[in-house]
Design a protein around this nucleic acid. Structure first.
Length: 570
DNA sequence: ATGTGGGAG
DNA sequence: GGTTCTCCCACAT
């Protein structure tokens, strides 16, 4: 069976912030870094830092188990996602400011895909093949003095397959090997910047597609980075590294193969026989008669995506030609939900709907309202959602447990979103009451016509169907990097601490490390031309600042909490 | 346009 | 699978 063609013309990075929710708290309160820390939502640990993992905790663990296993675990509540959302957006903006063309795609709060093809093509083009160990990576096309020095005879970080740190043989700057090698240095620079300037460590993957970059990043976690080495195509007897890399993966670990697809593939391979075997990509790929048509037969059917067979066959060979999508200015939907131990009276439903509606309105305003400057209290709407949706999840009756009866349902009703939701004069409480009375309760009755007998485990209120309003301003793609560093400096000077008794500390701007590495101290470089010859003050910085009291790097979203942390009585 | 299902973190 | 709280896409109607 023919292997589908792969596009190796691009260079894609994947970034994954380590235990993101926990890191957000650690950045606010650096003392937490050395303690076992777990983030709680309802009765479970949604994530925990690595100190906690060392002591046996893990994601999605029951709180009571976590406390039993690690009695001195520090538990923080993470049900309100606001600070995670803010931190995520700041990090996204910072990363995007480095990427030519702005092709940075968010996946959830804590992952990014970067298409760095442009930057890499430029930077392989300026290599001097006779002096690769003294190379300079240009970050800003408009100012080629902005960048960092690196050694282009070695990969930065780790590789798959693992290699000695021997210098590479390849010196053709247009080879895939050189492109990935240069990209590995840029990835390292980015992670160093995130760690030392912002306070977040991240794990990275480097390859030619989103699929491979993400998968190969998983090889060294946390705070590592891995490049998937060429050759990417089989030559003579030896298979490509792509096939070698893909083949040992359990199918369920492959992005795009979820639980449903994995189940069906499993059922097919082992017939009605053994139930719990680990099925790898190789097992599927090498099955007699396997190919797009058979996969289509196994996975096709009503509701399944068209062309699944072909797409799966590609994925099994590590082929993924999907683009890195540019980030959007407005989300396609905004939703708020809560889960409940018991929710079985109309009055409690009404109360909860009002609470959810209040949060939703706040979110609509922060995400869809453009506040051009802080001087303008009210801005323009970036988009108007046209549809309101109420979803619930009825609690399954207690007597059902075995045999494949389907479960896990959400049901929903939609309706037009009333236009009063865009009024900025009325207060949020009044709007929420009105939304519940005039829309949500009616929709609820359609979902649950019986006036009793139901019991809900979850309610979700969402707005969708965004219609963007006018003035679609292009996002300037090639941001000026040197200006960004200047902005950081400006903020450093401006950040003063309110406490009267706190010593006045003169803070110095820290710079992006030159050839520095995550896990080492940033080198304080002397000023270089083009880095800080700023002549004006930009009002806004998108990066972190140094706390004058403890010296930690604190992103903007965390400044208030961090000051509170210092001023809290011990 | 509305509702469901599957994927992701 | 389900625990949490989202966001996105595709399909079917």
């Amino acid at each position: 069976m023919a292997v589908p063609p792969r596009n190796d013309g691009r260079v894609i990075l994947h970034l994954d912030y380590d235990c993101f929710y926990a890191s957000v708290f650690e950045v606010e309160q650096p003392a937490l870094r050395s303690l076992p820390l777990a983030v709680q939502q309802k009765q479970i640990v949604v994530t925990c830092n690595y100190e906690a993992r060392r002591r046996g905790l893990h994601k999605l663990q029951l709180i009571k188990d976590a406390k039993r296993i690690c009695p001195d675990v520090v538990i923080v509540l993470g049900e309100d996602l606001t600070k995670f959302r803010n931190a995520s957006k700041e990090l996204y903006l910072i990363v995007r400011s480095f990427i030519w063309g702005g092709r940075v795609e968010k996946l959830g709060f804590d992952e990014l895909f970067l298409d760095v093809t442009e930057m890499i093509d430029y930077n392989t083009g300026v290599l001097n093949p006779n002096d690769l160990s003294n190379s300079f990576f240009v970050l800003d096309r408009k100012d080629p003095t902005v960048g960092f020095a690196y050694d282009a005879t070695r990969y930065q970080g780790l590789t798959f397959p693992a290699t000695e740190a021997a210098p590479i043989a390849q010196k053709d700057p247009f080879s895939l090997e050189m492109r990935l090698l240069v990209a590995s240095h840029f990835q390292w620079f980015l992670r160093s910047h995130m760690e030392h300037e912002i306070g977040f460590t991240a794990t990275g993957g480097i390859s030619t597609s989103k699929l491979l970059a993400k998968l190969v990043g998983n090889v060294h976690k946390p705070n590592g980075q891995t490049t998937l080495l060429p050759p990417y195509t089989a030559a003579g007897d030896n298979p490509s590294n792509v096939t070698h890399f893909m083949d040992d993966h359990e199918i369920r670990k492959i992005p795009g193969i979820g639980s449903r697809v994995a189940e069906r593939l499993k059922a097919h391979i082992s017939g009605a026989e053994s139930v719990d075997e680990k099925i790898t990509v190789r097992d599927i790929r090498q099955l007699p008669g396997m190919g797009p048509p058979l996969l289509e037969k196994i996975l096709g059917g009503p509701g399944s995506a068209k062309g699944v067979g072909t797409r799966m066959w590609s994925i099994l060979h590590g082929v993924d030609n999907t683009d890195v999508l540019e980030g959007r200015d407005v989300p396609t939907q905004i939703s708020i939900e809560d889960s409940y131990g018991r929710l079985d009276t109309l009055e409690s439903v009404r109360r909860e709907l009002v609470t959810l509606s209040r949060s939703l309105i706040r979110r609509i305003r922060t995400d869809l309202l453009e506040r051009s400057d802080e001087s303008t209290p009210q801005g323009r709407w970036l988009a108007h959602p046209r549809t309101l949706r109420l979803s619930t999840r009825p609690r399954p009756p207690p007597d059902m447990d075995t045999t494949r009866a389907y479960n896990f349902n959400r049901i929903s009703r939609s309706a037009p979103l009333p236009s009063f939701m865009f009024s900025l004069d009325e207060n949020i409480d009044a709007l929420a009451e009105r939304l519940v009375k005039e829309s949500l309760l009616i929709m609820f009755r359609k979902l649950h016509p019986e006036k009793a007998g139901w019991n809900l485990s979850l309610m979700n209120v969402a707005v969708t169907n965004m219609v963007e309003t006018a003035g679609d301003q292009k996002q300037s793609s090639g941001r000026d990097i040197s200006k960004m560093f200047r902005q950081q400096e400006t903020v450093l000077k401006d950040w003063t601490v309110q406490e009267p008794e706190s010593p006045s500390v003169s803070v110095q701007a820290s710079r992006a490390p030159i050839g520095g590495s995550p896990g080492t101290e940033p080198q304080s470089a002397e000023a270089e031309d083009g880095w800080d010859d700023g002549d004006e003050d930009e009002p806004l910085a998108s990066s972190g600042v140094l706390c004058p009291i403890c010296g930690a790097c604190i992103p903007h979203f965390a400044q208030v909490a961090h000051e509170t942390y210092h001023s809290a009585p011990e």
